[in-house]
Structures are given as C-alpha cells and as structure tokens.
Write a protein that binds this DNA or RNA. Structure first.
Lengths: 129, 129
DNA sequence: CTTGACCTTCCCCTGCACTGGAACGTCAAG
DNA sequence: CTTGACGTTCCAGTGCAGGGGAAGGTCAAG
C-alpha cells in the first residue's frame, strides 16, 4: 500500500509517516521501481502502537526505544526488563499524579456546583488551588 | 521576597517565573522602588499548583484557564463547572489510557522476565507491540 | 568604593512533534 | 496526451515550555 492509504488506515498523515521513518520509528519503507514508498498492511499495527504510547504520554524517543527492543531480536532480556520497569514506574507515577489532580479538581467542582453565594465565593471555590 | 528566593522556594528558576508572569500564570509582580520584583510568600502556593497541573499532564494554557477562574471572582459557577467537568473527563480518559498501556507493558515485561529462548524470542517478547 | 551576587529587559536558541509549501516526478482516467 | 491526484525531496515554520547570554542597574559586604 502507498503512504496515503497507510496514513488514512492508521489515522495520520503522509507527512507524519515520513517524519516517523526519518525518526527511526518506522523502518525505511520498501520502494516501488518509481520510488514510491510501499508498505505491508501490518505497518498499521506499528503506527497504532506509536499512537497508544503517545496517548499514554510517552515521547517518540521512548516509544522508539521500546520498538527497537522488538526489532533487535538479540536485545538482552535483562536490558529489556530494566527498560520496561523504568517505563512502568514512570507510568505508575503518572497515574498517581493524575489521580491526585482528579480528586483536587473533583472537590473544586463539587464546590462550584452549589451556586450559593456563601459557598461559591472565590475563596470557597478556590481554596484547593 | 525576590525572584531568586521565590524560584528556589518553588523549585524553579527566575527565568521560568518571568516566563510564567508573561504567560499570565502569575499576576504582574509588585516592584521595589528599584524595579525588582517583590513577591508575597504565598506565591509559592500558586507555582506549586502550576507544577501539580503540569505533572498531571495539563498544558500551561489549561492551568491558566483554571487559575483565571479563581482570579476572576465573578466567573459564573456554571462556566466553572463545565470547565472543570471537561478537565475531569480528560483526566479520566488519560488515566484509562495509561492503565491500558501499563497492562500492555507489564505483560511484555512478564515475558521478558523469562530468559528461556523459547519464551523470550523476539516474537514472544513483542507480540503485544 | 569596589566587588560579586543578584536583578532588569531584550533577543535569540533549544527540543519536541509535527506542518506548510516549493519544485518536481508518477500514474490511472478520460 | 493531458489532467488531477498522489508521490518524492528539501527547507522552513509552528506551538509549547522554557534556557542562554548580552548589556546594564542594584545592593550588601569587605
């Protein structure tokens, strides 16, 4: 498939895919005789993984690091584990932070839900900020 | 207190504080007769809130939006609630995504933990990518 | 009264993740 | 055989969240 099809299938743009290739997230694509990039359908899965990693707050460099582990079949398991443990710890921290912020905002929102001037004064609304 | 002290107390740099002021996250600071910025000690709390928001993945623009609500005592409660609901939904989504990625990586890590060639081949290790 | 630490503004630079646009090549349809 | 959609490379710009460093002012200590 060509780059436009792949981009549509993966929910992104040709520009971005060329950028991913240049960044090492995608292997250099095969080329047709005329120089067009030619992708196997399973490229969609790889791009999806990139998207999932991004949606979860990983940088492209971190996602690339994980993908490199897959691509290099010889990667030592210990290194793999360490890297993944690092990511896990990072993600757990991030979840904890988000949960704390969620609670803060939920309390704030609870106060804002009562349009009584006594309970909805700026001081009341914002005592959590 | 002066900008250097405040920065130290809040765990950031004078540069960043000037940038926050310019971005509207901090109100224009009072000035000493000689032009130095002069902060009240409670400025630390505001900067801490910015940091908490950031740590949770909000952009400075989003954090500013929340702070603006506090600063504008006349903000209608309904608007406040809508805005906070938006943030809550966003944060809940983000937590869900992070949790999913966490599980994916944890499974991956579990596989990588067994240095048996049969269970730790690239195909095995990476069937979740 | 000088020295050094700290402050001011100003402008430009960085890294990240793209995005736009120019200039040119390819290809299937009419 | 032309047209239009799609592809190629290359270079440059965007938005975010700051950081570097120049040129000059301020202030407390020695």
């Amino acid at each position: 498939m060509r780059i436009g099809e792949l981009a549509a299938a993966a929910g992104t743009t040709p520009k971005t895919l060329r950028f991913y290739e240049e960044s090492g997230l995608l292997p250099p694509a095969d080329r047709t005789p005329s120089g067009y990039r030619d992708y196997a359908p399973d490229a969609v899965a790889r791009i999806d993984f990139v998207h999932r990693g991004q949606a979860a707050g990983l940088t492209l460099a971190q996602i690339r690091q994980i993908l490199d582990i897959r691509d290099d079949g010889a990667a030592p398991c210990e290194h793999v584990r360490d890297l993944l443990d690092e990511r896990l710890a990072e993600i757990e921290q991030q979840i904890a932070r988000l949960t704390a912020l969620h609670d803060t905002i939920a309390e704030l929102r609870h106060d804002a839900a009562q349009p009584d001037p006594d309970t909805c004064s700026p001081e009341q609304v914002c005592r959590y900020l």
